[in-house]
Design a protein around this nucleic acid. Structure first.
Lengths: 125, 125
DNA sequence: CAACTGTATTAGTTCATTTAATACAGTTGT
DNA sequence: ACAACTGTATTAAATGAACTAATACAGTTG
C-alpha cells in the first residue's frame, strides 16, 4: 500500500501524506474507509509511530481524513480531495507550459506527450 | 539577477543553482559569459561565500559552467543546457498528463491551459 | 605588489526530522 | 471488568543537512 523511498530527500511523513492523497484521489481508498492504525502502519514500514501520526495529523488538517479516538482514522469527503488534486494538476500544467514557452518549445511537443499518455492509458494491457 | 526565497524549504544553494540554470537555458546568460564571483555574489545576497561556492561546484559538476582559478566562473555549452532543460520539461509534462489521466480529467483541459499560456506569451503587454 | 579570482579546510551553529519511551483516553469483544 | 485494540500527548535525545565563520593557499591581472 505504501512504499518509502529513502533516496527521496523529502521527509518520510510527507511521502506518506502524498501517497494517501493519491490513493484517495484515484478512488483506491473510498470515502469512509479506514486507514491503517498508527501503530500497525509504523510496524509495517519499520518506522516510529510518531512519524505516522504526524502524517495523519497533516491529512486531517487538510480535511482529507478524520480521526476518532479509540476507533481509528477514516477517509473524509473524497470528492473534495479529487477536486483539490485536479487544481494542483492545473497548476503544474501552467508551470510546465510557461517553462516550455520560455525555452522556445512548440506547444505541439507538449500536446504530443499528452496524446501519447492518454492513448497509452486507454487501451494498453 | 538572483532573488532568494527564505520561505522556500529548499536549500539556498539549490535555489541559486536553479536560478542560474534558468538564466542560461533562456539565453539571458550567454555561452562564455562570466558569472559573479563567489565573494561578490555572497556579499550581494548577504550570505556566506561557501554557500555560493557550493552552488557553483554543483553547476560545474553538471557541466553547466567551468571555473578557472584566478579568473572566474563562466557559462559552458549553453546548447546542452537548453536541451537538458527541455528534456526535464518533457518529463514534467508526462507526469502531469499521467496524473490528470488517473484523476479522470479530459485532455482538453490540459491543452486548454497550454493554449492560454502560449497565447498570453504571444501578444500581451 | 595589491586586489582581485577560485579552492580548501576545520569548527561550530541551527534546524527539521526521526526515534524512543511513556502515558492517558476512548472503543470493542469476550 | 478486562484485555487488546484505537488516537493523542509529551519530553528527551539522536541524527543529519544546511549554513556560517574564519582562515589559508593558489592563480590572474593591472
Amino acid at each position: 500500500m505504501i512504499i518509502l523511498d529513502y533516496r527521496d530527500r523529502r521527509p518520510i511523513y510527507e511521502q506518506i501524506v502524498e501517497r494517501f492523497e493519491e490513493l484517495m484521489a484515484t478512488g483506491a481508498l473510498e470515502e469512509g474507509s479506514q486507514l491503517p492504525s498508527v501503530r500497525s502502519l509504523a510496524m509495517e514500514l519499520s518506522i516510529n509511530p510518531n512519524t505516522i501520526q504526524r502524517a495523519y495529523v497533516e491529512l486531517e488538517r487538510q480535511g482529507y481524513i478524520y480521526s476518532v479516538k479509540g476507533k481509528g482514522s477514516f477517509v473524509a469527503d473524497s470528492g473534495r480531495i479529487r477536486d483539490s488534486r485536479r487544481q494542483e494538476v492545473c497548476r503544474h500544467q501552467e508551470e510546465t507550459a510557461r517553462e516550455a514557452l520560455a525555452l522556445g518549445m512548440d506547444r505541439e511537443e507538449l500536446e504530443g506527450i499528452i496524446g501519447r499518455i492518454y492513448s497509452e492509458g486507454g487501451d494498453e494491457r
